[in-house]
Design a binder for these strands. Sequence first.
DNA 1: TTTGACTTCCGAAACGTTTTGGATCACCGT
DNA 2: ACGGTGATCCAAAACGTTTCGGAAGTCAAA
Lengths: 363, 363
Amino acid sequence: MSLRRIARGLNISVTTASRALGGFSDVSAETRKKVRAEAERIGYRPNPAARRLRGGTSDAVGVVLPTGPGQLDDAFFLRLLGAIGPRLAAAGLDLIVGTARAGEEERAFYRQLVENRRVDAVILARTRRQDPRIGYLLDAGMPFVAHGRSEEPRAYAQVDVDGAAAFRLATERLIEGGHRRIGLLGAPRYYSFAHHRAQGFEAALAEAGLASGPVAEAEPTEENGFRLLQAMLAAGEAPTALLCATDRLAVGALRAAALAGLRVGRDLAVIGYDNLPVATYTNPPLTTFDPEVERSALRMVEMLLALLRGESPQGMAELRQARLIVRASDGPAAGRKPQTTSIDRQQGRHSPEETPHEGSAIP
Amino acid sequence: MSLRRIARGLNISVTTASRALGGFSDVSAETRKKVRAEAERIGYRPNPAARRLRGGTSDAVGVVLPTGPGQLDDAFFLRLLGAIGPRLAAAGLDLIVGTARAGEEERAFYRQLVENRRVDAVILARTRRQDPRIGYLLDAGMPFVAHGRSEEPRAYAQVDVDGAAAFRLATERLIEGGHRRIGLLGAPRYYSFAHHRAQGFEAALAEAGLASGPVAEAEPTEENGFRLLQAMLAAGEAPTALLCATDRLAVGALRAAALAGLRVGRDLAVIGYDNLPVATYTNPPLTTFDPEVERSALRMVEMLLALLRGESPQGMAELRQARLIVRASDGPAAGRKPQTTSIDRQQGRHSPEETPHEGSAIP
DNA sequence: TTTGACTTCCGAAACGTTTTGGATCACCGT
DNA sequence: ACGGTGATCCAAAACGTTTCGGAAGTCAAA
């Protein structure tokens, strides 16, 4: 009823009104101006449903948030949404989010999305090594971009952060600091990110000819971090340094260490991953990696728009580096002289150098 | 092209096919069965765009996540999304989320949503006392349900958690514990939730005839919690107990206290609000309130569906109670005998009673 | 004058659904 | 024989847009 209103008001055809607003060249400058003015005057908004029906497109992209223990309240997804949202909006795309726990529910939701043509493309986060979603979307011909790699052999648009490099660096750093018994609190290795981080850890150990310290894995929650480290300690396997696949695991581990009387940063070094807001304010502040999710998001949206333009996902793959944020939780091994910083970082009165909301960043 | 396919395949009219699937009574049982079978066979999915165009509805609800410092990475919104998502999906509604920082951007997004008729209803979170969004939606006649009260005089569907009652209870508890100098780390009072919590605090003090301890407010981030308490201490205004409007503020405050050499739970009692996952694993574990967001979400969706059925928002208002989760951060005032629990809760070896992933809940 | 090119416009079809307003037929009671 | 009642079906319109395939007019070159 609306393009028609413009047309009637100006005594022109609906076609011309449409093409004027659409920026086609077969309408005179004067007409175009009048149409624009009239559209403005009556507050014309194209009806998205009509546009979609006609165009066979849905102008929306879907993203499914994993629900379930230790999944949803992950700040990662919010950061991703926050970074992706405005860019999609700028491109005129709606963002439809669903929530589903991995498994049947998740599969059903993706099928919904695809079969009902509710979205033009989807965004996939936290890929798994064997990820049925990826195969499904490829088979269905639905454009998508994933955050994370997988073992799918076909090409697909992907952005990932190099967790292996990060954990290799962290491990080397610990070895350098004199640690010889380095443990790992990992996430389940069916998660792509967990696998890569563990591999980085293992590679660095192998290069240094070191045996691995205690290793355990579980869904990345604070509770599991707590339990896992507690179990290690109970088994008499205390490491002198502990790599945690995520900050949430690290937070739990920090607490387990404190309860066991271990001074983190002295008796036990801890390094996390994610740079959660809380990581600056743990006791002691947590050395961790910042994945700079916003940068990943930017690239993902770029890829997505390219896919929507019809480009092939061939070659759309980017591997970004995480930034190491050094705080106070990763001191050198006991009995070793500290390298650069003062011994007692986490106690005493506040002084500028120990302001906990800053960490020295190594790019 | 699809209802038509069914119709052609069965040699019936499109109308009949539509009405058969729509469950109308003017189609014979036999025909209906055949239509259902054929639809199943060819994998028929009604085209949502067509349906929306014809019906003038959009089968979607919108929610705008606030972006900006200390806003987005709030676990609150993820919990809300996670709880709302499946219920909306069950009702066949898409969930369109946008992200915008408060102010112009936010206003623009809401206008988008409304004027482009992209959604049938919207969900509003974290209301402000003077909330232009609420007036706008009311004026525009767009159905919505809000999480949080406001000073809007007209009736609108709302669910809120009784922050005043919670903070009154917390304050009474602290007074009961012998505290006489109780401070408040608040969020800005233009947030409805912050205002109510502060009011509960003030009411309890007034009733007890106590003067307020130091009070400060800022956006609810860890960093601000840290800075604000540090400023109080620097000003020589150390309280013996501190109420924090959110757990994120509390986490920062905990850190500032530790750096100042204060033993939280002994020299300083701290109570937060939100029951973030991390609250169980701070040092010491944080006494806090669990708002049980999922329950709010459930009621909000119920209201929303009612609104979509055309019911009036009149009387759609629910005020829920938060649950106090007692952990170790809120000991009695120094010099006072502890009441029920062992003195040293946060140190020493792990024993079952101090397992930090459990707290005693008072409903 | 004719031809062709160019500019500007438009009618009509199409996207896939739901709904309106009957049409057709069988059957029943009068 | 006839009006009435149900049951079952359907053609066509409508939702608002985009696009296809010209049409009409103007102008310049031939």
